[in-house]
Design a protein around this nucleic acid. Structure first.
Lengths: 337, 337
DNA sequence: GTTTGGTTTGCACACGTGTGCATAAAGTAT
DNA sequence: ATACTTTATGCACACGTGTGCAAACCAAAC
């Protein structure tokens, strides 16, 4: 059993109140006494018990972070950013995977509720209709990261999906491509819908008619991208460029193209979204839209802490995506060496 | 302010003790009364306050998970496994990144200490000499995953690095390769040393002399693999096969080879270790040693919970790696189509 | 020496829950 | 009817910390 504030009090021959104040650097306690107490506490290896403190202050200095799964590298990078600023501020982070399973979602909210987290960051992308009211019931500040339906909540940070998709599609059109395909995500996420409409926007601006045959559906993972790409390859008239919902999908698409012996970018340009750490090491290095993942995580956490410290603010931040041109996209009809 | 057990007690016109017992399904309370109380608690939306409970029971049903960084996909997959069984058992998981920074390591341990976690899982690979005694000071069960120096601790689960490396190196030798290189990790990790010695073992068994020129150093990330591969390519007599410390390193190596116009596997075989989710989508799909990452996470958590429930057990589990042969390795001198 | 005012300290309670023990109620055996 | 057992409930305390308020102490001013 680790020693309590009372043990320190006994050692210092003062009341536990004085110890509490001394350790909190309160002005009320005599400077010398305070220093003496701090010395004793340190020498004895005293560690304050957060549980007791939380009970007294009704603040846990704890936040919950819900995701579909941390196994997704995109999510993991955001998590790293969040954890970074949380640690700096003396907060700890509960990690919970919902796996987009409604039962788990409920379990996660219950757990956070019972543990009295001070705030929550949600990055569950596929949050269902039931999830939002459940979260609201928590009655703590909630920050959404790249979430769908941010409408219902006051605080969110999201990539500009539509703008990013527009950037990329325009890039492809500027390279001379006319038959530009989009590989989406069949899970019906808001970000997919937004990227799709950015794609549609850009086609229109470039005077290209949107052809439903060039819209295929993956699942946000390589396997889905591979399948979708294969269906595109089976078309009588193949596209010459493919914009994928995310980098993971693009990885699958690249694999399908290699298998089929289609050279990238000579015969087909491929683009992704996210700019995962490995994007620049792919074959060929992937042209993509960069999301500042860790930075978004840091910002999400920073805003949440502002809220926790009582600041009243409405923050619906949209971060612009950055076009990163690498070697997987090239002018139409170019020949690779 | 959410309602407390006393609020429920008032609603049910009983003492809070009775409510406590009713909700814990204690035999001591009358069946009908208990049911009535549970009804009322449920209808009122009562959620027990874990903070209060923890103070009373001195158990938090919380564990800490320390890693260098979750941004590493390998780590993230283990994390998913851990979180999975933790949730099932009603435990919550604190995530903390040490970034292999000694100051952060200290901060993490302090945080876990002050939050009175019931147990800790460490996956910090590069734990320094100071870290271990610091952890021991926590005085709670500690479970190590793929950690170096598991010697000092009673409970650990690790991949069989040496055996896995032997498997892979033998595979390469069996394909006829004589000049087999190893790209290690300059951070001086135990797993690197073990894989290196497995590599050396297998070379010896195959009657191949270990040539120091064929041992290069990366950093466990693609950039390091790329550099290391380039140094190997600069040799007068290049290797014909390269075994990389991990998949991330192999990804960098593949990139270097593509850049240099060296065909894989026709001119050079490449192998990794870990079997990350994307390994099978690389160009070419990567031959590697599979670590059952999520499963190891699940098992680590399961053992920790056994310990927490008082079971006395010594567990130093070594999990065998599985050789996964894909298309990045081929017989010496084979010609790609 | 008394009063005033400031500084420092401790008392006592609160936070929410679990639990040993005593008490009350109800049932059973004599 | 009494004594004993069983069952059900409440009282009171504990866990570790923070904090309003009163008390104690001290110094300065009169």
């Amino acid at each position: 059993m680790p020693l309590s504030i009372k043990d320190v009090a006994r050692l210092a021959r003062v009341s536990h109140s004085t110890v509490s104040r001394a350790l909190a650097n309160s002005q009320a306690v005599n400077r010398l006494t305070a220093e003496r107490i701090r010395r004793i506490a340190k020498d004895a290896g005293y560690r304050p018990n957060t549980i007791g403190r939380s009970l007294a202050t009704s603040r846990t200095r704890t936040i919950g972070f819900v995701v579909t799964t941390v196994a997704d590298p995109f999510v993991a990078e955001v998590a790293a950013g969040i954890e970074d600023v949380a640690r700096q501020r003396g907060y700890a982070v509960f990690l919970a995977n919902s796996n987009a399973d409604p039962d788990r979602e409920v379990a996660v909210v219950r757990s956070f509720q019972e543990r009295r987290v001070d705030g929550v960051i949600v990055m569950a992308s596929r949050v269902g209709g039931l999830y939002m009211p459940l979260l609201a019931e928590l009655d703590v500040p909630i920050m959404l990261v790249d979430n769908q339906h941010p409408g219902g909540f006051a605080h969110s940070i999201s990539i500009d999906d539509r703008g990013g998709a527009r950037l990329m599609t325009s890039h492809l059109a500027a390279l001379g491509h006319k038959r530009i395909a989009y590989v989406g995500d069949r899970n019906g996420m808001q970000s997919d819908a937004d990227r799709m409409s950015g794609y549609a926007d850009a086609l229109q601006s470039s005077g290209i008619e949107l052809d439903a045959a060039y819209v295929a559906l993956g699942n946000g993972a390589p396997a889905g991208g591979l399948e979708a790409m294969q269906s595109l390859l089976a078309l009588k008239q193949r596209p010459t460029a493919v914009f994928c919902y995310n980098d993971m999908t693009a990885i699958g698409a690249l694999r399908a193209l290699h298998k089929a012996g289609v050279r990238v970018p000579a015969e087909m340009s491929v683009a992704g979204f996210d700019d995962l750490a490995i994007a620049s090491f792919l074959q060929p290095p992937l042209t993509t839209v960069r999301q500042p993942k860790a930075e978004m995580g840091r910002q999400a956490a920073a805003i949440l802490f502002e809220l926790l410290e009582g600041k009243q603010l409405e923050a619906r931040i949209t971060v612009p995506g950055e076009l990163i041109v690498r070697e997987s996209t090239a002018p139409l009809g170019s020949i690779a060496l």
